[in-house]
Each structure stands twice: as structure tokens, then as C-alpha cells.
Design a protein around this nucleic acid. Structure first.
Lengths: 131, 131
DNA sequence: CATTTACCTACTGTGTCAATAGGTATTTTG
DNA sequence: CAAAATACCTATTGACACAGTAGGTAAATG
């Protein structure tokens, strides 16, 4: 299940791409255009700026800007940064506590396969594909 | 995200397949072998019996039995009956309230594609593959 | 200096998850 | 026929994530 965090993040990036021109786009404008809560968006974006997918300029005349061409953002990148967990089962998570049934578990390979299928799909589509 | 409901359901069916012989398997035995709560399993199974994937016989000497060969159960079948929602986003759900952004939504096709990829994977593996 | 913007942290209501608990109905066996 | 074993049903609970609300601070510009 993809939550609003990831879905809103994509909508925000699409909106910025469409409106940035050669300047910056205030998140307030994005929130209004998209009909979303500014305060909520503000707490979704930090991971994206921290990892360099967006740059945010403070102060009057500031706002956000993409750092790449839309075709160079893989959807999976955005979702992995904004979604809490994208893995189909908890035990596949990075740093998950070791499952004591691991040796005898007949299904872990199956879940790993599902995880791969999902991530391949997400990584084979770009932001450009959504515009 | 696949919850314990779906995962336990699969483990239960694998256990039944391995232990039914030509009789029935009491859920109490399954719970003990798998280290799961009997009471919890009891409320996961009803959809499976209701849709004929399992039969449950009451009374002494009763228990559960598969109705088909393990290779004839698609994983997707089991999960769609036991998981609350398998769809990546709510708006794809059967009977979901119509989204008012539907006309202008640029992402719904993308999510539909993800849903298809996931279900194809789940439906192209059978219970036999997990044994 | 005032305004605009990003950025940070705490709090809240709702709902699902993962069980636990206590029962009823049905069938077989002694 | 009684007792035991089984499936089946419904309510409750604690923890936690989701989706937002709220109230601020820091930085840059006009």
C-alpha cells in the first residue's frame, strides 16, 4: 500500500517541474494548486532535499527546484525516500531483526521475488512518464 | 505490505497440505506446529472455507482439508481473500468512492500498472511452489 | 526592518493490526 | 446419552502508523 506521503511527493515534484521555469516554486503555491495541506507537505519533503532530489531556497523569492531533468528521476527513488516501508514483508527490511524461522522459512524467497518485481516496475518509470 | 493474515494463511495451507494425508487436520495441531495463536488463526480462515479453498469438518475427528491439489492454488487467490487490501492505492479498490481528481489524475494508470504487475506475480506462483 | 519562505518539533484523532478472550454449534467417541 | 473435540462467532484490547494540525525558528530578500 502506497500512502499519501509518497503519492503527494510525486504530485509535488510534477507540479514543480511544470512551474519552475528558471526560478523557484514556493510550496505554498504548490499546496494551493494541488489542494493539499502546506504543513503536511512541509514534513514530507525534507528527505528529498536531504538526498539532493530537490533544492530549497529560503527567504523571499525562494522555493523549491528540481536538480535534474524529470526523465532522470526514477519513481522508485522518490518513493523509497518518502514511504516508510515499501517492502512487502518486514523481514526484508534493511536492519530488520533476524527472524528465527529464517532457516526453515519456505516463503522468504517468494517475498524477495515480489519485492524485486515491484522495485523493477518503480525504477523503470520516471517522473517524465507521469507528466 | 503483506500482513500476518495473508502470511499465516499461506503457512496454514502449506501445513495442511503436508499433514492431511487422507484425513483432516485440526487447526490446534497446525497452531502448535507453526507456533501461532489458535484463536487468531480461527478468525483468518473463514473466508477461505467460505470460498471453497478449504473444507472444515466440525466435531471430534474433524479439522480442515484442502479441496484441490497444491499446484492448483494460486497465491494471489489466497492473499486476496485474507488480506484487507492488496491494491497499491485506495482508489483502485472495488467499490471505492469516486475520486474527484480522476479526470485530471496523471498517476492512476501508473498505479494500475503496479497493481497488475503485483497480481501477475502472485497469480503465477502456486502453493506448490512454496513447498 | 518587514515579509516571505524553508525548516523543525510536538501533538491529536482515527483506524488497522495482531492478538486475546469467552463463548456457541456440531459431530464423534466411550 | 454424556463427554470431549472440533469448527465457528463476536467483542475487546494495546500498540502503532497514518494524515493531518499547530506553533514555532532560521534565513534571505525587498
Amino acid at each position: 500500500m502506497i500512502s499519501t506521503r509518497g503519492r503527494y511527493a510525486l504530485r509535488v515534484m510534477i507540479d514543480i517541474a511544470a512551474n519552475q521555469g528558471d526560478g523557484h516554486v514556493p510550496m505554498k503555491d504548490v499546496a494551493e494548486r494541488q489542494g493539499l495541506s502546506l504543513k503536511y507537505l512541509e514534513q514530507i519533503l525534507p528527505p528529498l532535499t536531504r538526498h539532493g532530489l530537490l533544492v530549497g531556497i529560503q527567504g523571499k523569492g525562494g522555493g523549491y527546484r528540481l536538480t535534474r531533468d524529470p526523465k532522470d528521476y526514477r519513481i522508485g527513488e522518490v518513493l523509497r525516500l518518502t514511504e516508510k516501508d515499501l517492502e512487502p514483508v518486514g523481514c526484508l527490511k534493511e536492519g530488520a531483526p533476524a527472524c528465527e524461522r529464517r532457516n526453515i522459512c519456505k516463503t522468504v524467497d517468494f517475498w524477495q521475488g515480489l519485492n524485486t518485481v515491484v522495485n523493477d516496475y518503480l525504477d523503470n518509470h520516471t517522473l517524465q512518464d507521469l507528466m
